[in-house]
Each structure stands twice: as structure tokens, then as C-alpha cells.
């Protein structure tokens, strides 16, 4: 769209410049890119290529010192799809399904809560709105490993604050037995490949706590960019609150929230800390994510070949996600631009 306007050369309709002159812009571009590209070539793209190589071999601890690994063709890929690897409770499609469900439910809740609270705080004349905003932002400012460890302790069956609180609230009616949030092995919900244990809800709770505030901040920014006279005009036309929200607020929120929701989806899809530290992927590996499996394959099993094949699967899944979400974002942008 804006490609033509940026190149200053096209402004001057002089005789056709030499190749050297014409490529000046490109040369500058490469010069700017060079440092980042060099570093990324070495520390990002090289490991990536190395992964591709490893994924077709039986690369293991023995090969780290430099001895070449034996080629095994597509065995690693086949073993992953068949669930035929050393990791216990490994079922690729179950984990993938859970991973998608996990990211999706989180983002839907984060965005809805974020918008709801932003709209609430944005009401004209609400007392203490600034004070609430300052408090609500706190979870975002805590390092993730601490969030995960604290929530693990919170959900501890015997010493955790969640059970203390529930026990205190229900103590007038009955004595609540300690709930083992993170280890209870019963399925709460089981539909096809989707299995949700109690631990899922504990992880969800922790991640909602962590996730909605930033959504709320982004929504607040968008809300404050809505011209006030739009509402005044709507009011004159006799629109009620819901109609105002539906026809003024939402259309303004969408372009700001959608890209953020997509970003949040990918971040949540790859969220290592909560699953790894809170539930340890349990019970029966039902709360493992692709990223924690990756960690186990590399750190605990040293199955570098299989881990590499696994990472390649992950790469294509995420690439597909990128392309789809990119389209979605573009579509929204076009709609409003």
C-alpha cells in the first residue's frame, strides 16, 4: 500500500539512475539489518537448522561431544505421532488438544474480563477509579516463576490459602475435606481427546489472575480514544446503555483488542511456568503443554533427536497459527482503516 511513497528516488523524475544508485536504499537496509541478522543467524537460525538435522537422527548425550549421530529417517516423527516415546503419559493429540483448549479458554476469559472491568472503571463519576487501576495492574509486575510458585503453594491441599479460605467460608455448614487441586486424578470433563482434571481449573484460576489486567489496560486505552460526543449524540437519539456499548464501544474496542488477543493466545499457548511448576504436568500428564514436553525431552531425557522432531511439529503448528492470525488481524485492519 505505502510502498511507493517511501522511496525518495521516485520523487525525482530524472534520467534512469545507475544500478548502484538504485540499490542504495536496499544497501542501507541490509546495513541496518546486518548486526541483528548476524547475531540471529548464529544464535537463532543456526540452532533452528541444527534442529532440523537432529530431528532425522538419534542424537543423544553421546553425540554432544562431536561424534556424529546415526540417521534414522522419519522414525522420530513417527514415534511422536504413535505416542511411542519414553515419556510416560504421552499422547500427542491429547496434549495438542489440551494445549489449544487451554490457550483458547484463557484468552476468551482474559479479554471478556479485561473489557468488562475497563468499561466499569471508565464510567463517568466512578469514585476511586485511579486507585483501582493502580491495584489491578500489580499481577503483571510479578516475575512469572514467582507467580507460579506462589499459586502452587496457594493450592496446596494441607497448607494452601485456597483451602484455608474455602474451609473458613464453609465451616458454618460443614467441614470441608482438603481438596487436592493439583493432583486429584479424576476427570472433571472428558470429551474425546479433551480431558480436563481439577488441576486445569487451578491453572486457569492462576492464569486468569495473571492475564486479565493487561487486557484491561489495553481496553482502557481504546475506550479513552472514543470521542465523548459520540455517546452524547447516541443519547440524544434515545439509545440505551447496551445499545451504546454494542454500537459505539465495541466497534472501537475491536481493532485494539483483537491483535492483543492474538498475541495473548500465542503467549498462553507457550506458557511454560504455570504447567511446569504448579501441576508438574499432572495428573497423568493431563496438563502438559507442548512446551513442557519439549523441556522434559531435552532436560530430563536428553532425547535431542526426538525433541528436535517435536520442536519441528511445534514450529509448524505455530507457523500455521501465525499465518491465520495474521490474516485475521489484516481483515480487521482493513475493515476499519
Amino acid at each position: 500500500m505505502s510502498v511507493a511513497t517511501a522511496a525518495p528516488e521516485t520523487i525525482a523524475p530524472l534520467p534512469r539512475p545507475s544500478w548502484w544508485r538504485r540499490s542504495a536504499n536496499a544497501r542501507t537496509a541490509y546495513l541496518f539489518l546486518l548486526p541483528a541478522l548476524l547475531v540471529m543467524a548464529v544464535i537463532t537460525f543456526y540452532p533452528l537448522m541444527f534442529q532440523v538435522y537432529m530431528s532425522f537422527t538419534d542424537y543423544s548425550l553421546k553425540n554432544l561431544a562431536g561424534t556424529p549421530a546415526n540417521p534414522v529417517g522419519l522414525d522420530n516423527y513417527a514415534s511422536i505421532l504413535n505416542g511411542n516415546i519414553v515419556l510416560p503419559n504421552f499422547d500427542f493429540f491429547r496434549i495438542l488438544t489440551f494445549n489449544f483448549f487451554w490457550a483458547l479458554t484463557n484468552v476468551v476469559i482474559h479479554v471478556s474480563l479485561g473489557v468488562l472491568i475497563a468499561v466499569l472503571l471508565n464510567q463517568k463519576g466512578l469514585k476511586l477509579a485511579r486507585f483501582y487501576r493502580a491495584i489491578y495492574i500489580l499481577p503483571v509486575a510479578i516475575p512469572p516463576i514467582i507467580v507460579a510458585a506462589v499459586w502452587r503453594d496457594m493450592f496446596d491441599p494441607n497448607n494452601g490459602a485456597v483451602n484455608f479460605l474455602l474451609g473458613g467460608l464453609t465451616s458454618i455448614f460443614f467441614k470441608l475435606p482438603p481438596i487436592d487441586w493439583l493432583n486429584n486424578p479424576s476427570d472433571i470433563l472428558s470429551v474425546g481427546p479433551l480431558v480436563l482434571p481439577l488441576a486445569y481449573f487451578a491453572l486457569l484460576t492462576a492464569n486468569i489472575w495473571l492475564g486479565w489486567p493487561l487486557n484491561s489496560v489495553v481496553a482502557t486505552g481504546a475506550l479513552q480514544s472514543i470521542p465523548g460526543d459520540l455517546y452524547e449524540a447516541a443519547e440524544l437519539d434515545g439509545a440505551n446503555s447496551w445499545q451504546q456499548f454494542r454500537h459505539i464501544t465495541l466497534p472501537f474496542l475491536r481493532p485494539a483488542m483483537l491483535p492483543y488477543a492474538i498475541y495473548g493466545f500465542i503467549i498462553t499457548f507457550n506458557l511454560f511456568y504455570l504447567s511446569y511448576f504448579m501441576s508438574g504436568g499432572g495428573p497423568f500428564g493431563q496438563t502438559e503443554l507442548l512446551v513442557t514436553i519439549d523441556y522434559r525431552l531435552v532436560q530430563e531425557q536428553h532425547l535431542f533427536g526426538i525433541a528436535a522432531a517435536f520442536a519441528i511439529f511445534q514450529f509448524f503448528i505455530l507457523l500455521a497459527l501465525t499465518i491465520i492470525t495474521n490474516r485475521m488481524a489484516k481483515a480487521t485492519a482493513d475493515q476499519y482503516a
Binding site: 537463532t44 540452532p47 541444527f50 507457550n270 531435552v298 520442536a311 505455530l318
Partner: peptide, 15 residues
């Protein structure tokens, strides 16, 4: 963008 999506965990051995 694609690299952004691959978790760092995956690159430990080659790095």
C-alpha cells in the same frame, strides 16, 4: 515472526 513462536527451550542443545 516464526522464530518468535518457537520456545527457547527447543534451542538448548545446539546453543
Amino acid at each position: 515472526l516464526a522464530v518468535l513462536m518457537l520456545p527457547a527451550v527447543a534451542t538448548l542443545a545446539p546453543l
